[in-house]
Design a protein around this nucleic acid. Sequence first.
DNA 1: CAGCTTTAATTGTCTGACAAATGATTTCTA
DNA 2: TAGAAATCATTTGTCAGACAATTAAAGCTG
Lengths: 245, 245
Amino acid sequence: MISMKTDLKTDRELSAQIADAIRNAIIDGSLIVDERLPSEAELSEQFHVSRPTVREALKRLAAQNLIRTRRGATGGAFVNRLRFEEAYGQQITTSTLLLSMNDVDFETACEARFTLERACVALSAKRHTGDHMATMRAEIHRQSQPGLSDEAFCASDVAFHRALVDGAQNPVLSYQLAGAIEAIEPLMNMITFSARSREEIVALHTEIANAIEAGNGNAANKTLERLAEYTVELANTVFQKRKQK
Amino acid sequence: MISMKTDLKTDRELSAQIADAIRNAIIDGSLIVDERLPSEAELSEQFHVSRPTVREALKRLAAQNLIRTRRGATGGAFVNRLRFEEAYGQQITTSTLLLSMNDVDFETACEARFTLERACVALSAKRHTGDHMATMRAEIHRQSQPGLSDEAFCASDVAFHRALVDGAQNPVLSYQLAGAIEAIEPLMNMITFSARSREEIVALHTEIANAIEAGNGNAANKTLERLAEYTVELANTVFQKRKQK
DNA sequence: CAGCTTTAATTGTCTGACAAATGATTTCTA
DNA sequence: TAGAAATCATTTGTCAGACAATTAAAGCTG
């Protein structure tokens, strides 16, 4: 039994209320990970609704990655273990839409991103592994390739910064930062990166990687601040040029 | 027309594929905010599926707050403007479940929270308004009330810290921090706060509020660090006691 | 005992229907 | 004619019943 409060109101969609009831059961621990929910037929009896209505409720939960379903004799709906890696995607999608739909300006988004990132570098300097360094170096190398498109340059930039954050070895930090770092990519993609500016960014990235490798979080922090300033400056000139046209 | 790639595969649920198609149309801008989607009947024609299948797809999107629906003559499904305030809830639910389902220990969650928070105080010290200060002072006052339950104390703690972060006046920061700050509340709720420890926390909160009001982000940062250490220490003694039993 | 077949359970999808809400239209009335 | 009331058309919300597809377990067969 999910919850005995089966007294559904009439002022909201039934499928939404049922989804809420099940979601709450998951949150408060009445339903634990990998536990099987009652079959759709049983749920429709319990809640006194039809099977399509139950199914709509289950699809709502599936959209939030809270359950998975399997057909067949031993099939059904099961409570999902929400994993950090899977939650990234959702987090990034939402963050991206928030920026674009609320007309957040580049400076605000950039400030948030670099502020959060600077918070992580001290930990990253202490805890990073060879893997993180290797990723950072590889991305720096990619960024200095001549024929690289602006989009690929941005993507590499994102990869570099994610490795930087992942170096802190705190999954909660990595998760929270994913949204801030990735969501800004579409905005960065509007920038045209000249050879000169790429050089500058690569130099700053290298400086950051060196500081991290040396365990000097303070230096990395300061360079990151310069990178933040440079990025905003770059964006401003681009956007001002756009305006003039 | 949402997308002409109506060649749906057979290896995934149709409703999931349709939801993806519409979601992508929203993300890439083919569907703009407040635009009305085709009616369910029209969508089922376009995608060559039945109405219940279309409905399941729409419910998936509704669960992510991407659309809203209205009945009636001029009703239908409309693209939602995703707002920061509405996204908070989702973000908090997900963060909370991530912590509990992945057995993230208190120290890791706490580290993430305070690391991110400390990143914000410099901005908060510069930009906070009277409202933010008033909220912080009010919550500090509430926390020093004698008859307060542990749960209410935690809730007030959360409110204090959110006001602190909101003081930075950067909606992106507030959004990202919401998850980190609120998700830890269930873990904090497992702690019993003695009168002595409450006094200590209130003292630290007061010190932080004073520093913010004085525009001294550096001092606030340092006090926040002490608060982080004290919180972890408190939790450790509680959890060690639990273990001994 | 291994391999095949059957069976039962469960989700995925479809059809058709009616209820409820809601704005637009028409009709009625003063 | 102006305003109120009734009607209509459109659309989502819900229901009932059916069948297909999938899957594991049980039963059968050599």
